[in-house]
C-alpha cells in the first residue's frame, strides 16, 4: 500500500471552501486538481481554484534578489531565510464529500476541520468522484474565484485523463455544463474552448 503524502494543512475553512498551507514552498497542487481533507466524520473533496506563494507576513513586500545570481536556485542559496519567510498556499472549492464510502456531490454538513491534512487525490479517486457530475453546479455558481471558468476547464481536463476515454468524459461534462449554462451561451463556449 502506498503511503499517502500529505501536501498541506487547512488553515482557514468554511462550508464552501478552505485555505491550505503547503508544507513545501512553491510545491502547490495544480490549478483545477482535486484534493481531499477531513471534516467531521467525512472526507471532503475540494478543487484547487487559486494558489499563491507570498510573504508570510502581510504587508511585507518581497524584493527581487537575483540580479547578481546566475540561477534562481542561487537566490535561495544566498538567502536561506527566504524559504521560511515565504509560504505557498492554495484555496480549494468544496465540491462534495464522502461518508462510509458513499460519495455525495454536495456540500458537507460541516466545513473541513482546521489543521486537517490535505492530500492530493489519486487518479482512481478522481475517476470515482467524477462518475457523476452534479458538483459542476457548485463550481459554476461559485463567487469566490475570479475565473471560475478557468478552474472548471482545468479540472475537467485533469479529470478526463483518469477516464478510459477522455473525449467521452469531456462530452458528458460539457453537456452537464450546457444544461446549467443554457442561458449563457458565451460562457459555455468559453469553457468548452478551454477543454
Amino acid at each position: 500500500m502506498v503511503v499517502e503524502q500529505k501536501i498541506a494543512e487547512v488553515i482557514e475553512t468554511s462550508n464552501s471552501e478552505f485555505l491550505a498551507e503547503c508544507y513545501d514552498l512553491d510545491n502547490v497542487p495544480a490549478l483545477g486538481s482535486m484534493v481531499r481533507t477531513k471534516g467531521k466524520g467525512c472526507q471532503i473533496y475540494g478543487i484547487v481554484y487559486v494558489s499563491a506563494t507570498h510573504s508570510i507576513e502581510p504587508g511585507r513586500r518581497i524584493a527581487a534578489r537575483g540580479k547578481a545570481a546566475t540561477s534562481e536556485a542561487d537566490v535561495f542559496k544566498a538567502n536561506p531565510q527566504l524559504a521560511k519567510l515565504l509560504c505557498s498556499d492554495f484555496k480549494a472549492l468544496v465540491v462534495g464529500h464522502s461518508q462510509d464510502k458513499a460519495i455525495y456531490q454536495y456540500l458537507p454538513p460541516s466545513p473541513a476541520s482546521i489543521y486537517s491534512f490535505v492530500y492530493a487525490c489519486s487518479p482512481v479517486e478522481v475517476k470515482q468522484f467524477t462518475q457523476s457530475l452534479n458538483f459542476l453546479n457548485l463550481m459554476i455558481e461559485s463567487r469566490s474565484t475570479v475565473a471560475p471558468d478557468e478552474v472548471i476547464a482545468a479540472f475537467l481536463r485533469y479529470a478526463s485523463l483518469t477516464h478510459p476515454v477522455p473525449e467521452e468524459f469531456l462530452v458528458k461534462a460539457g453537456k452537464e455544463l450546457a444544461w446549467t449554462l443554457s442561458n449563457d451561451m458565451r460562457r459555455l463556449d468559453s469553457i468548452l474552448k478551454r477543454l
Binding site: K77, P80, Q81, A83, K84
Partner: peptide, 14 residues
C-alpha cells in the same frame, strides 16, 4: 532569533 546557514547546505531557522 534568526539562524542562517550559508554554503553547501543553506538553511534558515526563524
Amino acid at each position: 532569533l534568526v539562524e542562517l546557514q550559508y554554503g553547501s547546505k543553506p538553511d534558515a531557522e526563524l
